[in-house]
Nucleic acid binder design. Structure first.
Lengths: 216, 216
DNA sequence: TAATAAATTTAGACAAGTCTAAATTTATTA
DNA sequence: TAATAAATTTAGACTTGTCTAAATTTATTA
């Protein structure tokens, strides 16, 4: 098996890979709250284990085995989050940190049984798809609210930021998963967005719009 | 918080303390599958943190804060074992290793909610009492089968060994928790014990009798 | 009780993962 | 395209937890 640190690196590389072909040392250092030199050391180690493709100065990609491990960790993370919210009644802004620990519980048999116990949920409390035991994701076509034009709209489906501060803000604004919204106006000056919901208009910053995903 | 290694040492000291006033370096080394010299190093560290009382060559005892941490880990271990058996349908011989990992999940809020979710069970799948959130145990007066005389008997209540091999053996012999037994005979030569259950006689070794606890 | 055995500790080393500071490579820009 | 800036890697060090081998202390026994 892999160490906790190795698992966290693989997971982080996976997440960053979604937005860029190659993941850079500095991106990883920022996400993992560590120094670039530490990242370099670990990249060598993961490369030796053939879990990543690493060329010095050129960033990294995951190999097939590396991606498999990363997806499995993400599966565990999301299933535990679902468990914490649906079974133990935690709020969606309270579960991320706990799931960060729980995702490293090694048994796959355990996670498969947990999955069945909960009825094989397809999405976690933040709207992210839960990979199945083969690592297959439900692909669904989501769009960032920040990428929409006026009059476009849909249903809030997922969030791209899991920090308690952000989630609590959404909760307060009643911008939670399942809510139907439409772009009423985009402020040219700062790209703030005014959303129209069933019963009111809500103004959100570009920052917020950039972390909110909807299904059209 | 404490490291995983520290938590495991505290837990082991706690367990060994039940059978001896002072816990020795070698006892710990054996239980933790490590070397005496490594134990000495860790004892100094725990002593510096005032989690144990350590006098070189004289063994250790837990301090009040040290015991509190140990009991909390045991609480988590037993609640997770209960969860795995009662909710995820694992067998009692399958859960120990998983719980060894899960007991280190740090959130106490999580464990308290898990406790409530399961209806605040008093005993784990091996019959061990589950401490409450204050660290209080249900004390019950159990006796080792090996300590009984002929004609004495009671209900199998707990086991002192959690190895899959032992638990599977008990399962096969139908000597599981709740079973009523009585001592029919003790073989003088090797201290084997012949048990009378409702429907049959079962011979067990002294070794087995020494790991089986009954409530009279 | 002196000699021997067993238990424990000390000394020095190592692997994992991290850090700072310096060196190197790549990217940017004047 | 030469100079500068930014990104990355290397070198050397530190911490945690472990190890082996040697030294020391405690227990046992003749």
């Amino acid at each position: 098996m892999n160490t906790l640190a190795e698992e966290n690196y693989l997971k982080s590389i996976y997440h960053l890979s979604l937005n860029a072909e190659n993941v850079s040392t500095n991106q990883l250092a920022a996400l993992l709250n560590t120094k670039a030199s530490s990242v370099t050391d670990m990249l060598k180690k993961l490369s030796d284990k053939e879990l990543i493709n690493y060329t010095p100065y050129q960033g990294v990609t995951l190999t097939v085995p590396g991606e498999k491990i990363a997806v499995n960790i993400i599966r565990k993370h999301r299933l535990w989050e679902y468990f914490l919210v649906e079974k133990l009644n935690f709020k969606w802004d309270e579960v991320h940190e706990m799931a960060e620990e729980m995702e490293h519980i090694s048994s796959n048999e355990l996670i498969d049984r947990l999955d069945k116990f909960m009825g094989c949920p397809e999405y976690d409390p933040h709207g992210d798809p839960i990979p199945d035991s083969n690592g297959a994701f439900k692909v669904n076509d989501l769009k960032l609210v920040s990428a929409l034009s006026v009059t476009e709209g849909g249903t809030i489906w997922a969030v791209r930021n899991h920090s308690p501060a952000f989630l609590q803000y959404l909760e307060k604004q009643e911008l939670t998963i399942g809510k139907k919204i439409r772009i009423a106006e985009i402020i040219e000056f700062d790209h703030s967005v005014i959303l129209q919901t069933e019963d009111k208009r809500i103004q959100i910053s570009r920052e917020v719009a950039n972390n909110l995903l909807i299904s059209i």
